[in-house]
Design a protein around this nucleic acid. Sequence first.
DNA 1: CCGAGAAGTGGCACAGTATGCCAGGAAGTC
DNA 2: GACTTCCTGGCATACTGTGCCACTTCTCGG
Lengths: 231, 231
Amino acid sequence: MACLLSHCATRTRIRGTLCHMPVPSEFVSPTSATTLGLRERNKLRTRQEIADATLRLAAEKGLEHVTVEQIAAAADVAPRTFFRYFDSKEDALLADHPERLELLRETLKSRPPSEGPLTAVRTAILDVAGDLEDHRDLMLCKVQLMENNPTLRGRSLEMMGDLERMIAEALAERTGVDLETDFRPFLIAGAVCTAMRVAIDRWGATGGTGDLTAMVADALDLLDGGLDHSI
Amino acid sequence: MACLLSHCATRTRIRGTLCHMPVPSEFVSPTSATTLGLRERNKLRTRQEIADATLRLAAEKGLEHVTVEQIAAAADVAPRTFFRYFDSKEDALLADHPERLELLRETLKSRPPSEGPLTAVRTAILDVAGDLEDHRDLMLCKVQLMENNPTLRGRSLEMMGDLERMIAEALAERTGVDLETDFRPFLIAGAVCTAMRVAIDRWGATGGTGDLTAMVADALDLLDGGLDHSI
DNA sequence: CCGAGAAGTGGCACAGTATGCCAGGAAGTC
DNA sequence: GACTTCCTGGCATACTGTGCCACTTCTCGG
């Protein structure tokens, strides 16, 4: 952390070897190297460094006590550059959301058409939960940051709307109903995401002890059985 | 609307009789007059004027194209005063949230203990839906503003968390389960709020045609039956 | 009725967020 | 190696949000 942050004379943007910040293994992109050009790789790295710096600083003092200027300094970019990658501090902290959305899309696409719509969605959402659990420490940190930061929570909830939309679309497609006239796909998608959200909240509240995927599965089972049998 | 907004020379803040803006009937507080002192009544009126101005301007150009300065001018207060009443434009637009929360609390409290927990919650949430429908035009406007304003939507989602918490507490109390160790109250509360939210979204998407309360009831029925029977 | 204290308002200053614009330089292309 | 593309950082600027202070209005007790 005690690195020479802001006085690199000629910033030559060769960060492949001169990485001054120990990037946690969770952060290395799966689609590394070969396929992407240097420009793209540098962009990915910068994005990751900003996200990384944001989380690190937020974990220290809480996101509301960290300024974009500080984040930019820690990530060794100009404040102006920060806003080229993220629209806000909140977005930088939740930078992995697009990956999660992509994972959901892939899983939904990969489930055979023969599989029931709800089963496919269930599998997909458990997949996402599993992915979250794979980054347990990072997730736990973020969940706890959300607990006492309404803005961050709001942004996260809003992002969950993306998951909902995608699930609703998948349900509509697999059942053949029209999203425009029938709200059931959205209702089920909302319920499923609620199940995940509540499970995550509880998981976070208990300090990440327990199996997140199992908790999500339990929540889904309860909703499957109908509200009146849930309690 | 075509009132003398910003050039009142000596603003003497006696707004009881000299109200320069026709306050829509929806805005008049039920607890008017006698019980409250002049100071309190003035505060309520100012709050309402700010909320009113916010909605009116937002309806014209979209909330993101309205500045706090403009809202303050339209409500005939100083920008500094705006922030004494609301933390943000979004909050000013969603100013009626506390009333809704209070309505939910009252209804939940008024349901007899003999009533099943889910029935009580259902009644309460339908009550809220009915209240929303009573302000049909205002609600429709807000719902449509939310459609293309992520920040506003996020804030609204976050506020819905208040409803969820209250419902979860009521459920926990009526069933005797512990909120700290059992996530079922939160799960059901989340599902119920999701039902309302999805119904509102659809209601808004169809331009407010249709019976909102009935749509919420339908959504609740579907969830009652269990996810696998929903579609 | 009146004076003291409580409380609301508005002006000012200031930190922070967010974005448009432009010049300089690195990466990609041939 | 020259040409193009586009990423970066600096500058300017609009807007949000809050602390502080002086001024005015309201409330309440005598």
